[in-house]
Amino acid sequence: MRIALVVNREPHEADVWEGESLLFALRERLGLPGSKNACEQGECGSCSVLLDGRLVCACLVLAVQADGHEVITVEGLGDGDQLHRVQEAFLEAGAVQCGFCTPGLVVATVDLLERVPQPSDDEIREALAGNLCRCTGYAKIFDAVRLAAGIQP
């Protein structure tokens, strides 16, 4: 069936199978592979996107549920060639290794800092506990969040 949705501020239409996830539609139908598929059951957060401004796992949302709604993916955070401050902070802090978790963590961090501009360390941990990272041990990701929030170490 055909769906119409706004992705990264641009209108899109796609023909999807009714069982398809929003993640599959983003990756395979709309040419936006930035959101990653690592578990397909909402455990790892690699596919985190903002759906009408709410943080969701795109693997747990059906593509048809996004019909008529607005989605922001990692590809839509920056402004042209200008990185979002969270993306910049992830680079500066060394929070990226293999990078497979990075799109989801960047989106989750943007969501956190919009809700809580100056999060405590406990708030950072709690907010990112749904995003698995296997490379970094999280320390430099926490550094990146604090850097993006302007919190002095």
Partner: peptide
């Protein structure tokens, strides 16, 4: 990698 442009095998 931070912008989602990096092409993983998948």
């Amino acid at each position: 990698k931070v912008t989602g442009q990096f092409a993983y095998a998948s």
